[in-house]
């Protein structure tokens, strides 16, 4: 399986915005990501398809920024197709990809 985060994307980002700012950006994402997952869960429980799409869209957008391709792909599928036949499994798969990406991002910060 491919890396949860494509480090070359982070390298490019670091070059563009500087190392300190990259850390600030990653920390912001790590702080915001659980909220976005919670929004997705809430939308699912409320059968709010628009809310599901929007939460997935935000996660996809941020994951792409940090080169977390697997997370972005899982989020994009939800954005386009909804949660499908087994919503809990789709959410769990996204959560799993996100957790791995967050670990990799944390690793990058810790150097």
């Amino acid at each position: 399986m491919s890396d949860p985060v494509d480090m070359s994307v982070l390298d490019e980002l670091e070059e563009a915005v500087g190392p300190d700012f990259l850390i600030e950006l990653i920390e912001t994402f790590m702080a915001e990501a659980p909220g976005m997952m919670a929004e997705l869960q809430t939308a699912h429980e409320g059968a709010d398809t628009e809310g599901i799409r929007r939460a997935a869209h935000s996660l996809k957008s941020n994951a792409t920024t940090f080169g977390a391709h697997a997370t972005a792909q899982a989020a994009r599928e939800i954005e386009l197709e909804g949660l499908g036949a087994s919503p809990e499994a789709a959410i769990a798969a996204l959560q799993d990809a996100l957790s791995q990406a967050v670990l990799a991002l944390q690793g990058r910060i810790d150097g």
Partner: peptide, 12 residues
Amino acid sequence: DNRVNRLLLSRS
């Protein structure tokens, strides 16, 4: 509406 995007675009 996304904080990461706002931060990144402002910085850019």
